[in-house]
Structure formats: C-alpha cells, structure tokens
C-alpha cells in the first residue's frame, strides 16, 4: 500500500511505556473515500492505535503521516480542521444543550470570542439533521440517554467537517435501527471523499459495510485489505480464536458471518 498517497498513514509505528510495547511494527494507509473497520480482540491495541492516529499519544517509534506530513508539523488548529475523533465514552458534567455541544465542533474555525458565522451554523444544523437530533437540539446533554449522547458526540465530530474521521465503537450504545442508520451515514461520508476509520467489535456490521478491514492482535497488524479478501474464516480464526463461516449474502449485498458455539470461556481446543 502506498502510504505516501494515503490521507492518513502509520509508518513503522510502535507505542509502549516502561519498556513494554503495546503496539509495534505498524505500517498502514487509510485512503480518502474509504470506510475502514479496525477490528481485533480485546487488548489488541485498537484504541491505542486510534489515539496515536489522532495525535493524542506520541509514538514511541515511527510516525503518523497526515496528507504526507508528520502530525507534529501541524498546529493544533490545523490538525483539528483535518482530523476529528468521536470517542467511545464521553462524560458530560455541565448542562450544555445538544446544539451547543455540536457547535463546539466548530471550535477549530472560530475566532477568539466563539461567534458562529452563518456557515458554521449551517454545518451545525446539518450535523444535527444527519444524526436525527433536531428535536433534541434544545435539551441539556446531561439529560440524554446513552444512545442519544453518543449520537450528539458523533454530530459534534461531523460539525468539525474534516477529511479524516475516526470513530471509537460508535454503535456501542445504539440499537440496531440506529446502528444501521449510522452505518449508512458513514458510507455517505466516505462517498463524499473522506477517510472514515471505525474501531468496532461488531463484525456483522463490518461484513456488510466495511470497504477495507484492518485486523490487529496483541499489538501487531495481522492483515489489512479489501473486505472480500480479508474477511475469511482462516483469518477470523487466527485473530479471534473462534470458528467462523463467511458467505456472500444477497439480502445485505455484503458478506455474512456465523460462529460455531463454544461451551465455556476456557481455552479453545485449537
């Protein structure tokens, strides 16, 4: 993969502390217009990779390139106009309204006193609409349910209007109806020419919506590439230690996975 041409790329990336590496030897590229699913078992280093890609952690080795330039060469404001991160968990301590929280996504474009221009307001309204939050716009964010709050955080990320969007477990508190809607939206965003990178545990959704897969295990890259080539029973068993079947599903137009049941949480027979 030509990392230099990628919108966002990792080069020989490694991260660790106290002499112990959590991630190592990661070289990866995320192209514009792609919807990437980053998957792997718990503790594979997915969230750490996301934090490195977003510039929240400094790599122990290697570097992250955004449009061919190292992340450190961007000012915080420039970076925030190019790359947005929707975290998995947010804690809201103050009763800002949903509209106010989403408007905070415009922070990288605002002047010192934070006045929203008509264009900023347009982006905020569009983000609220795309996440179906219009009717909640005036509600204090502290009174929302988990799923509503998660949608508000994603709307804030959308209002940031960046070519690269990272999402950590965006469907974790959403029901199936909302998850499908969100996946459709991510597909739309990728079609607009953005690079969308999703960390997810939901392989069923990945099998339908991902264009590219990235498999991590124990801090190492196991495989990456187009969905049809990487989502194979062999690779799934290698990464997740579970027996799977994968087939083309005409109902979804994508792939489908089913798993062989296991008796308990003990070590697997293989």
């Amino acid at each position: 993969m030509a990392e230099e041409l990628a919108e966002l790329a990792a080069q020989d990336l490694a991260f660790g502390y106290d002499g112990r590496l959590i991630l190592r030897d990661l070289t990866l590229g995320f192209q514009a217009g792609g919807l990437f699913f980053l998957v792997g078992p718990n503790g594979a280093g997915k969230s750490t990779l996301l934090a490195l890609l977003a510039g929240l952690l400094a790599p122990t080795q290697g570097r992250v390139l955004l449009r061919g330039q190292p992340l450190s060469s961007f000012s915080p404001r420039e970076l925030a106009r190019l790359l947005a991160l929707a975290p998995q968990k947010s804690t809201f301590s103050l009763p800002f309204t949903v509209a106010e929280v989403v408007a905070m996504g415009r922070r990288p474009y605002l002047g010192r006193w934070g006045r929203l221009s008509p264009r900023d307001q347009e982006k905020v309204d569009l983000a609220l609409t795309r996440l179906g939050l219009e009717s909640l716009a005036g509600r204090p964010i502290t009174t929302l349910s988990g799923g509503e709050a998660q949608r508000a955080v994603i709307a804030r990320t959308l209002a940031q209007d960046t070519p690269v969007i990272l999402l950590d477990e965006p469907t974790a508190s959403l029901d199936i109806h909302q998850s499908l809607g969100l996946m459709g939206l991510l597909r739309e965003l990728a079609a607009e020419g953005r690079a969308i990178i999703v960390v997810s545990h939901d392989l069923t959704l990945a099998a339908v919506y991902a264009q590219e897969m990235v498999f991590l295990k124990k801090g190492r890259l196991v495989a990456s590439g187009p969905l049809a080539q990487t989502l194979t029973p062999e690779l799934l068993e290698l990464v997740f230690e579970a027996e799977a079947r994968v087939w083309a599903d005409e109902f979804t137009g994508g792939l489908a996975i089913s798993w062989r049941p296991r008796p308990n949480l003990g070590p697997s027979a293989s």
Binding site: A54, R107, R156, Q160
Partner: peptide, 13 residues
C-alpha cells in the same frame, strides 16, 4: 468541559 482529549482533538492547547 467535554474532556481534555476531546478538547485536544478540537485544537485546544
């Protein structure tokens, strides 16, 4: 107030 990591990804020092 959204959290320091979120503030950082929004360009706040």
């Amino acid at each position: 107030t959204l959290g320091l990591d979120q503030a950082r990804t929004l360009g706040v020092n």
